[in-house]
Design a protein around this nucleic acid. Structure first.
Lengths: 195, 195
DNA sequence: GTCTATATGCTGATAGAC
DNA sequence: GTCTATCAGCATATAGAC
């Protein structure tokens, strides 16, 4: 603990990422200094540049990892079956995946404007791919006559906003369990698409 | 235009607020300096302190005005009538009011963490009052047997997140008019509450 | 009411010792 | 791999001239 120097590259890198995520989520990218991140990790500011080329990369890497992990995790569970079953799987996946990593979700939504133009474009492309996953479910249900949706693109945006909103108010140990929240949102989602 | 000094207190104050709103929305509170705001207004940085005690007050005043105006505007249109009619009025009001002032809405949602603890508490109280307006409509419809809602508190949060989300993707002159968006969201809202 | 000048301190990033 | 020292610049806020 009192150790001030030493060779610990195998763990310091991830700790830099973790500290940046934690601080960016709590105080915002622009409000957090490199010195503050270094302090959280327990190194001097200069040492951070062994693990990231600059502050912008630190933010981009966090957001890129988050979006990639989101898409990959969905691919693992992306249900086959009827559109209704697939929509139910999406509802469950989105709520649980987002509740499991509130800091990454918060940063991914709040810090978009602090990305460089090139990095912003890359992250938006990943977000578009995730939205397309939901829209394909809605289109399939609409074509099969199982859903009644006036506009699948708007329904996609509406449902994602509604589901992501859970992160803003859900508190562990609160009035409702995650499973109960999932069930209640499923009821509203199902009705909203006319199923 | 080339005028560098002079007495224009009656317009400089509002211009400071407008510049702060514009810049905070575009770049974020923490990323915007007082010098930058002064530059936008066309005065020196020191002159800003004639119109605000400090940077924090600039942010708080913007958010407080926004929330107060939101509550007051709703009070003007808050429909009497059946719960279904009142919900339809809320749907319309929320979408249009928010689309009319995207910068204020954006700042009010994104900069909460940059408020001092006392100011945060005050803003959250105003937000709670607005949410209570919607929840009272949902409760009335539920009690009258006209809605079918598993949990009115969650439905309140879900619907507000969904409606506010319009601001993140709606672009003037895009594929859909505001009226069409309102109609499509009303279809989804109505179905979601089981009406 | 606005200006200039200034105080005090923090910023991202780099160079070079160890 | 981490440290210390440093650069050049910008931050908020205030004092006092005009």
């Amino acid at each position: 603990m009192a150790r001030k120097t030493g060779s610990r590259s195998e763990i310091t890198g991830p700790r830099v990422q973790a500290a940046a995520l934690h601080l960016f989520a709590a105080e915002g990218y622009a409000a957090v200094s490199m010195r503050r991140i270094a302090q959280e990790v327990g190194v001097q500011a200069g040492a951070l540049y062994l693990y990231t080329s600059d502050k912008q990369s630190l933010l981009y890497d966090l957001m890129q990892s988050h979006m990639t992990e989101l898409l990959e995790a969905w691919r693992q569970v992306a249900a086959v079956g009827s559109p209704l079953e697939r929509l139910r799987a999406f509802n469950r996946f989105h709520i649980f995946h987002h509740l499991d990593r509130p800091e990454a979700v918060f940063v991914a939504y709040m810090e978009l404007r602090n990305l460089s133009p090139e990095n912003f474009t890359r992250i938006e492309a990943l977000r578009g791919r995730y939205e397309a996953e939901l829209e394909s479910i809605l289109k399939a249900g609409q074509q099969a006559g199982q859903f009644d949706i006036p506009d699948t693109k708007l329904a996609t945006m509406a449902l994602i906003a509604m589901l992501t909103g859970v992160n803003t108010w859900f508190r562990q140990g609160g009035r409702l369990s995650r499973e109960r929240v999932e069930a209640i949102y499923w009821d509203m989602v199902r009705k909203a698409v006319g199923a």
